[in-house]
């Protein structure tokens, strides 16, 4: 009964994130151990994601092509609308780096490098890349990693700060320094999960689900020692492992969703 009550209170708190003193009163009643189960509010997620994204943009700014940026936003938004979080303020961008990589941050920020964009052969391949990143945000993979890291490093103090409402400081400490969030390695099961949900999201949006596997194949043709994939390989499983897992998950059942050529024409700068 107590566990149920605490769960109910927890759910209420997530819903009344900004109900000031009511929240504080409720928090006081919940034992510290159970407060650890509370998630970040969506506002916290967005604030954290925005800060990390702004730091990445300091290193690699947006490619100066408005039509390109609007195009990836259109395609990305369409795909995200088929997810369980369609109403996040999704933002997409192509950043000026020769690296072959894509990044996502909590709250709906997705960035693709120019190096990766130039390798794409179709809108379906773009859709596959964006869908994988959207999946990370939908599944809150980075949020979970951040929370675990913070709790391990700061433990009770972090929780106490959350209780006291020092959310800005909490959020800042969650994402770490600068854009280092994007150099962190997620649990590899999280990457496999993002691949699986990614092909599903692409299929839901009307694309062939094989865009993402095709991009993985292209990446695999790059020498591992190529500097442009060193960060990618630091943070992701090797393409072959990902392809094997996707094959095991998709089997032949996904072939009915295959629509080679579906979608618009990939925008070329």
């Amino acid at each position: 009964m107590r566990a149920f009550l605490c769960l109910l209170l927890g759910l209420l708190l997530v819903g009344v994130a900004d109900a000031g003193s009511l929240r504080d009163k409720l928090l006081e009643k919940i034992p510290e151990s159970e407060r650890l189960l509370l998630g970040l509010s969506e506002e916290d997620e967005i604030r954290a994601g925005r800060q990390a994204t702004a730091s990445l943009l300091a290193v690699a700014p947006l490619v100066a092509d408005e039509a390109l940026q609007r195009y990836v936003n259109t395609v990305g938004r369409w795909i995200a609308m088929g997810s369980s979080r369609p109403d996040l303020p999704w933002r997409f961008g192509v950043i000026d780096s020769a690296d072959v990589n894509a990044f996502s941050a909590p709250g709906g920020y997705v960035l693709v490098t120019r190096g990766l964009y130039e390798s794409l052969g179709s809108e379906a391949e773009l859709a596959g890349v964006l869908a994988h990143e959207i999946a990370h945000v939908v599944e809150r993979h980075q949020v979970e990693l951040l929370r675990e890291t913070l709790l391990i490093e700061e433990g009770r103090e972090a929780v106490a700060k959350a209780v006291r409402g020092e959310r800005r400081d909490l959020v800042r400490r969650l994402i770490g320094t600068g854009a280092e969030l994007f150099a962190r390695r997620l649990d590899q099961d999280a990457e496999f999960e993002a691949d699986r949900l990614g092909v599903v999201l692409a299929a839901r949006a009307g694309y062939s689900p094989y865009g993402l596997p095709a991009v993985l194949q292209k990446i695999a043709t790059l020498a591992p020692a190529d500097d442009r994939v060193q960060l990618l390989y630091k943070t992701h499983p090797p393409p072959e492992a990902r392809l094997r897992r996707l094959d095991a998950a998709m089997g032949n059942a996904f072939d009915k969703y295959d629509r080679p050529g579906a979608g618009g024409k990939l925008y070329r700068p």
């Binding site: 800060q51 702004a54 730091s55 990445l56 943009l57 300091a58 290193v59 690699a60 700014p61 947006l62 780096s97 020769a98 690296d99 990589n101 770490g176 320094t177 600068g178 854009a179 280092e180 994007f182 150099a183 500097d227 442009r228 994939v229 060193q230 960060l231 630091k234």
Partner: peptide, 16 residues
């Protein structure tokens, strides 16, 4: 390529 140290040292670019 992009380096972790580079990312860590970055300060947010509000305009961008």
């Amino acid at each position: 390529g992009l380096r972790e140290e580079q990312l860590r040292a970055a300060a947010p670019n509000e305009g961008e």
